[in-house]
Amino acid sequence: MAPDRVSAMSYELSDGARQRRSPNTNIAASAHDAVKVYGAGENAVRALDGVTVDFEQGRFTAIMGPSGSGKSTLMQCVAGLDQLTSGRVLVGERDLSELSDRALTLLRRDEIGFVFQSFNLLPTLSAAENITLPLALAGRRPDGAWLDQVVTTLGLADRLSHRPTELSGGQQQRVAVARALVARPQLMFADEPTGNLDSRAGGEILAFLRRAVRELDQTVVMVTHDPLAASYADRVLFLADGRLVDELSDPEPERILDRLKTLTEGVAP
């Protein structure tokens, strides 16, 4: 999407003025009155219960909430991995509910990057092959300069020919981040990216995600339950019981922790 195109949609940005960078008014993705119900009848669970939210381009957004709050469901629906029960998800200007499985697949391949908690690398491929996998699936050649930049930034230059089993957890997750970035996606989703890492390796990954936003102008949405991880984001959304209940801009770990506490106290009677 061209950077100068302005979305006609309204958006709220409570702490927008405090952004360090000039505010970018482009919306990378948004959810409108998103409802997701699992099961049916008496057993029905409303994982998302009318969530409306925008994800601005060039920002690092974290989604937090107690387990069962619907944070992962929100991410999966926005990322085109799952379908809403009602409401709309727009990626760029496309309504995901109108896309076929094939179109969704191509959207994921070309415009969305993923980082998972458990790395999810293909064991048969080398690090370099894992990184360029989305491009290879699309039958495209990688952009050499961009690839170099990503690989160098992630400190993977001397690990490219290694197989996943020969890499440490942190290295594997860096490969996964590089894979998510290599196709220059509109959006990058990270689902508990530091969940399987020690604090040092986790810190590296988070710092890199932030650099990707600051320096490479990427848009990152991260689901986490770790306040320290969330503090790397520009903005934190809090979900509880499938609703958006709060948000913070330029958060610090202590403030996040405070909000979380009130959230859980609020939930408990």
Partner: peptide, 14 residues
């Protein structure tokens, strides 16, 4: 299963 899921997630068509 997981690998196949990943492949689908990163854009492998059916």
């Amino acid at each position: 299963t997981r690998e196949l899921g990943l492949l689908r997630a990163v854009g492998a068509t059916r």
